[in-house]
Amino acid sequence: EIDIMEAAGGNPDKIGGTIHYGEEYPNNTYTSGDYHFPEGEDITGYHTYSVEWEPGEIRWYVDGELYQTLNDWFSKGTNQADKYAFPAPFDQEFYMILNLAVGGWYGGNPDETTEFPGEMEVDYVRVYELTGRDYKEPVEPVVEDEELPEDAKQPLEDGNLIYDQSYQEPITVVDQPEDSLDPTYWNFLKLPQFGGEGTMEATDVDGERFAKTTIENPGNALWSLQQIQKIAILKGHTYEVTFDAKSNTNRNLMTKVSGGAERGYANYSGEKTFQLSDVVQSYNYTFTLNQDTDLAARLEFNMGSNGQAPVWIGNVRVEDVTDQQEEETSKSPLGDGNRIYNGTFD
């Protein structure tokens, strides 16, 4: 999906341009950028929104002003060993949609201050073919290895990117949209617009320290109740996430590594859903960061919208395993267990 222009009525002084790519939902991701209007202008006036789409590069404009250029993305099929050839998925025909939506996470749900009816006025839609020169040849960007800057959150001596694994530090409760996450230690997020209510406290489970989330109201979204810690991760590096968890009955727990608000909450790892039981079990997943380095990425455990059964989480680790991945020479099975790669000749 290529979003030529997205606007939210609650923020009329800016618009966004976005590409959606990666794997199939919910393991897709996106990259976006914002355009801020000059003082005195906003989305209520007429403006010309456009993209220039060439093989391997997409450019966004407002009133002829270039504000974003993207040339780095990927596409990967479910249970496939490798990515499709660049510039997939933006190497095929798309269709165009112009719509006026109400609600959703992008603009938020309407309330008593929302004015109805809402209108979208479109003067024209035009599509041009490039003339005067050939289209660019697509060139997939080369990922150059980099190191964390000195002022970034560094891994501990044992390689763990997670601080306070045993919950000795206070857990920061974030329950208002204007509140900030603690940049170093654990956070418990329960924003009122999503309806989640509960508490999080450190407790002992079989002699080890776990964070226990007691759920009073699961809210209306998976992210209604979240346990979050910020981590610094590098583009092109592979990471392994491991943790122990339980409930007092069978229930699901969704976890992922994502960007924050400044990254549009981009999904870096894909959503990983595990079924918990009343016995402590160990869980793990790996992912490679294909987007730009993020020094304020978020490890999330999402416990909303899934009943009131409590959740215990402990022994959380996030470790850079890039070197281990490069040393492995055996051909690993795909996600569905198949040892034949590209069995569908895609």
Rank of each mutant, 00 (worst) to 15 (best):
T249R: 07
P310M: 00
G335F: 00
P183R: 01
A88Q: 03
D123G: 08
E115W: 06
N11D: 05
I4H: 05
F210L: 14
T114R: 10
G118E: 02
Q165T: 15
Y30P: 11
Y285L: 09
N217Q: 10
L156N: 05
F116A: 09
W223E: 13
Q227Y: 07
N248H: 11
T113V: 14
E115N: 06
D164Q: 04
G64L: 09
V122Y: 05
E52C: 03
R209V: 10
G259F: 03
E93I: 07
V127S: 02
A88R: 01
P12C: 11
Y30Q: 05
G236M: 04
G264P: 00
D151W: 15
P149S: 03
F287W: 08
I233Q: 08
E327C: 10
N27V: 12
N109M: 15
G195V: 01
T203V: 13
A101E: 11
G207D: 00
I313K: 10
L100F: 04
E41F: 03
P333I: 03
D323E: 14
N217K: 00
L222H: 06
W312S: 11
P192M: 12
W312N: 14
E54H: 11
Y135I: 12
T286H: 01
E137T: 12
N217H: 09
T214A: 09
S332A: 09
D134S: 02
G314E: 07
Q275K: 13
P155W: 08
F301G: 12
S277W: 04
Q154T: 13
H36S: 06
M200C: 01
A7Q: 10
Q193H: 12
D72C: 09
L148S: 15
V316K: 12
P141F: 06
M303P: 00
D123K: 13
V127H: 09
V102S: 02
Y239W: 01
S32D: 13
G33Y: 15
G104Y: 02
Y46K: 12
S50W: 01
I97E: 09
Q324L: 15
E112P: 07
W53Q: 01
G195M: 00
E197D: 05
S258C: 12
G9Y: 04
L191R: 05
T199G: 10
D244E: 14
T214R: 03
P138W: 03
I215N: 07
R251A: 05
T329Y: 04
R339T: 10
V318I: 13
D34S: 11
S224M: 07
L130D: 06
L189R: 14
A245Y: 02
I228E: 02
K190M: 15
P192W: 06
E57Y: 01
G236I: 01
Y67F: 08
G77C: 11
G259D: 01
R209T: 11
V318Q: 14
N290E: 04
Y49P: 00
N71A: 14
T199P: 00
I340P: 07
